[in-house]
Amino acid sequence: MTQWGIEVEHLRKEFDGKPAVRDVSFTVGAGTLLGLLGPNGSGKTTIINCLTTVLTPDGGRLLVDGCDVTGAPEQVRARIAVTGQFAALDEVLSGRDNLMLFGRLLRLPKRQARQRADELLDRFALGDAADKPVKAYSGGMRRRLDLAASLVVPRPVVFLDEPTTGLDPRSREELWQTIRQLRDDGATILLTSQYLEEVDRLADRVVVIDAGRVIAEGTGDELKGRVGGQVCEVTVPEPNRAAAREALRAFSGEVAEHGEHLVVPVSRPAQLVEIVRLLDDRGIEIDDAALRKPTLDEVFFALTGRADETADGDERAADGDAGTTGRDGERPAGAVPAEGARS
């Protein structure tokens, strides 16, 4: 076994001349979990697609479990498990039949494929729905089955592309538990996410990317330190907002405005009091002031010095996906949300 489960050196990939990934390098230690954090369109999925042999990189060197992705893609495919953003399952077949299908495709004998399917159904708490067609599954069940399907044969390297997008908190917690267990079993895991909290809870190390570039790297704590750990959110009613903003700017250079909220990074909790006092001194009336953990928006604001303009729209796009997979009993046919989008 090599020291690194995954090595990415100077990866470049463009689509029709537009760079999607520009010179990205990182490594994932064998048996560790790396979180790849970034907004939609930042290049996360492209990196995963290059590493899983779906796309051919335009430049750079990629090694998965010591195998060269461009030189020996067959070797790579025999070592990886991939769970994509959208549950790639056969809607018509039952959960058990899906797992058996993938087992048989991986050349397991029929009996063994069945046995393995039953084991996985059990482990992923899908036993009750084993014989129902996948189209009747809820979003959380789909994601669990999708993950199970990629693990029909255990693999040393696991790719999880936004595995919890659109899941309700309980399903998310269950999936996190499963992912931790996978890592405890010794797998090298690359997980992409839009949620700071998710990477924070799961990852040994975090790589933050934006617009196809690595903009930060480190452990969760190191990153939070760079963001400032906490932000102060001040709620100001309209006639006072401009004045409040001006006042806060004197306090810190990075003032973000979200509707009626003004957000400032703070390094010490005591700064909350200082902010309130500053505003009070200037006679600016406020509705509320509170400390909270930074959101992904604010991480990007702190790391890139600009607000993440795409995050809002992407959040909505992700919610649209959530509508198809997140609600119990909803079927995720592409046609339905598309219809909704048109009207």
């Binding site: 079927r331 046609a335 339905v336 219809e339 909704g340 009207s343």
Partner: peptide
Amino acid sequence: HLDLRGGL
């Protein structure tokens, strides 16, 4: 059918 399914 899509109206009914789509929740409209």
